[in-house]
Nucleic acid binder design. Structure first.
Length: 317
DNA sequence: GTCGAATGGAAAG
DNA sequence: TTTCCCTTCGACT
């Protein structure tokens, strides 16, 4: 259940551990067996990612991976090695004389020093440069990539009447942003999630983009999503640190029903763009400008429905 | 044990 | 807009 930072960490783990020399490939689960046989023993030239898509290059063959909701990777080192300290890449406990298959391992890549298992991905397929290009065509700029062009996101966003919270989840607008980053970035920006894209000011977009870059880069470095500013964190406020398997300190994500860290208002939740959205109604007020846009949108919608109803009546008669 | 949610997205309708 | 798929994990019988 990863957002873009996890894929970027995966890319460096693949490249660092297996790059530049032959590696064995297999599919203990079987669903990637034919493809694994094709690249078995070949050299991994590079691993790169765009948003949540990872591409491992073996000459002209490319393994395309997307973790989807359930995908995970686990890196194990024969020599103990470093503790990578992240949920998706962890150290094998005990003596690694054996290399047990834990769970439904779609793809295992290994050499004498390490093995890396991939389970539950939405996509794990063998493709080529053309296939990769087709994926990239559907993706907007990725805040984690140095070559990202935020202007492309702005052009999409500021013409859209859709809520900013829906646009943030649209991978063709922002690649790599997921449900946590959308909720947290909106909170930090003080933006109501229902604010239509067209109502966002240029400067607000630029701040949002920069903040996403910061939050996601931090997550790549640490393997955690921490979005709470120092002045609001447990050390500064005395409140208890958040404890769950994700571990990060956040303002609103999955905190519905609990008091906002800043103002104490109860954090709300609803479903938007098929996912659970979380926000603080006080810290993320709907501005007059946004309210006006929303009202106009509502009027237009009502008129459209009236027209539609009249047209239907006319047809029936 | 069983069920539903989960940091996702594509295909069908 | 709904349905389906991926697999794991925690909450609930």
């Amino acid at each position: 259940m990863p957002e873009g930072h996890v894929t970027h960490r995966m890319a460096s783990a693949y490249e660092r551990t297996f790059g530049g020399r032959p590696a064995r490939s297999s599919s203990p689960q079987g669903r990637f067996a034919e493809e694994a046989a094709i690249i078995d023993g070949r050299v991994l030239d590079s691993a790169e990612c765009f948003g949540k898509h990872l591409f491992c290059h073996f000459g002209h063959d490319i393994v395309h991976i997307h973790l989807g909701m359930a995908g995970k990777t686990r890196l194990n080192r024969a020599d103990g090695g470093e503790d990578l300290g992240e949920e998706v890449v962890q150290l094998a406990p005990g003596d690694p004389g054996e290399r047990p298959v834990l769970g439904a391992v779609r793809w295992r890549i290994e050499n004498d020093e390490a093995w890396l298992d991939l389970t539950g991905p939405a996509i794990c397929e063998l493709t080529d440069a053309e296939g990769q290009a087709a994926v990239l065509e559907r993706l907007g700029p990725d805040p984690l990539r140095a070559d990202a062009d935020p202007e492309r996101a702005w052009q999409r966003l500021h013409r859209s009447k859709l809520p900013i919270a829906a646009l943030l989840m649209d991978q063709s607008v922002f690649a790599g942003v997921g449900n946590i980053f959308r909720a947290e970035a909106l909170y930090r920006a003080g933006l109501d999630p229902m604010l239509p894209g067209v109502a966002l000011k240029r400067v607000e977009f630029e701040q949002l983009w920069d903040d996403l870059c910061d939050l996601m880069a931090y997550a790549v470095d640490t393997g955690r999503i921490d979005t709470v500013r120092p002045e609001d964190d447990p050390a500064a406020t005395g409140r208890a640190a958040r404890v769950d398997r994700h571990g990060g300190e956040v303002y609103v994500y999955r905190r519905d029903g609990q008091p906002c860290h800043v103002c104490g208002t109860t954090v709300k939740t609803t479903t938007l763009a098929t996912r659970n959205l979380f926000w603080c109604p006080t810290c993320q007020p709907l501005s007059r400008r946004a309210a006006a846009v929303a009202a106009r949108r509502k009027q237009t919608e009502a008129r459209r429905k009236q027209t539609e109803a009249r047209r239907k009546q006319g047809v029936e008669r």
